[in-house]
């Protein structure tokens, strides 16, 4: 360790610290401006955009929250994310386990490659037909969106989980099988536990996608205001608050707040999970 510090040299360390501090300013700067200006009145923000607010003025927050719509959008985003994740956790490990433990059989070989083909298809290819299909079966609603997220989660999920299960030793399963456990019992009481780390990774990646997704909600839910998610609310309100920009900042902050709170408490797991998923992918 001592060797490293000596050899890296002072110049490099100064340069590195300058780069890192500059980066932090560029990242936190805009978020700081959003925060401080959300507490200002319009004239105050006009006078001094960069300073801290003279007093904590919660009028913008009161106005935004009193409309009641905000909570509706938070609720929509929450339950769509929650049930989509539930579907992801129900359908991804089961099919991955079946493929991983039957990889010598033709049917499972075929469905494995079939599910992985999705890696080659950009979302734009399916988005137009999907809107027509979903209109046709009357699923332009959160339920339809949840089903779609489940279906679209499969390519990545199967890719990550099959590799993971195949690297696990099969001895425990064989022992359980000799003891008379059925496949379902083995899956439920052994496999699910063993694959938990990779499943957590998958859940984090997918939850972040569902929570922040703009494209699919735009296609499926935009026509019905009662179904809007937080990104849709943000997009549709960009004109409403174009004059009252401190109010706009308040709404940005409130839209980011839930995910930033989650990040503040679980950042270690989130960072580890996303790295794991990306490196393996």
């Amino acid at each position: 360790m001592k060797l490293t510090i000596k050899a890296e040299g002072l110049g490099w360390r100064i340069l590195r610290n300058v780069v890192l501090v500059l980066g932090i300013i560029i990242i936190l700067g805009p978020l700081y401006l959003v925060l401080v200006n959300s507490f200002k009145t319009m004239p105050e923000a006009g006078r001094n955009f960069f300073a801290l607010p003279q007093s904590l003025n919660f009028n913008n927050y009161a106005e935004l929250l009193s409309k009641g719509e905000y909570w509706g959008y938070v609720w929509n985003t929450t339950y769509i994310t929650f049930f989509s994740i539930l579907l992801v956790v129900l359908i991804n490990p089961t099919v991955s386990y079946a493929i991983a433990r039957n990889s010598h059989k033709t049917y499972y070989k075929i469905i494995y490659f079939y599910l992985l083909l999705g890696l080659f298809v950009p979302f734009q290819v399916i988005m137009l037909p999907l809107t027509k299909i979903m209109t046709g079966i009357q699923l332009l609603n959160p339920f339809g969106l949840i089903i779609l997220y489940g279906a679209l989660s499969l390519t990545r999920g199967v890719f990550l989980l099959v590799n993971y299960i195949q690297q696990m030793p099969a001895e425990i399963e064989e022992a359980a099988r000799i003891d008379g456990c059925s496949t379902f019992q083995i899956y439920y009481s052994i496999i699910l536990r063993l694959i938990a780390p990779m499943l957590v990774t998958l859940v984090i990646m997918d939850a972040l996608w569902f929570w922040n997704d703009f494209m699919l909600p735009l296609l499926l839910l935009n026509k019905a205001k009662e179904f809007w998610t937080l990104p849709l609310f943000q997009y549709n309100f960009k004109t409403e608050y174009s004059f009252n920009y401190t109010m706009a900042f308040t709404s940005y902050l409130m839209a980011m707040l839930p995910i930033i709170l989650v990040y503040a408490f679980g950042q270690k797991h989130i960072i580890a999970g996303l790295t794991e998923g990306a490196v393996k992918g």
Binding site: A98, Y108, L115, I133
Partner: peptide, 14 residues
């Protein structure tokens, strides 16, 4: 185990 995934993927993706 494989069925829900294959059905959903076939209909909504393929």
């Amino acid at each position: 185990f494989s069925l829900p995934a294959v059905i959903l993927y076939s209909f909504f993706f393929v």
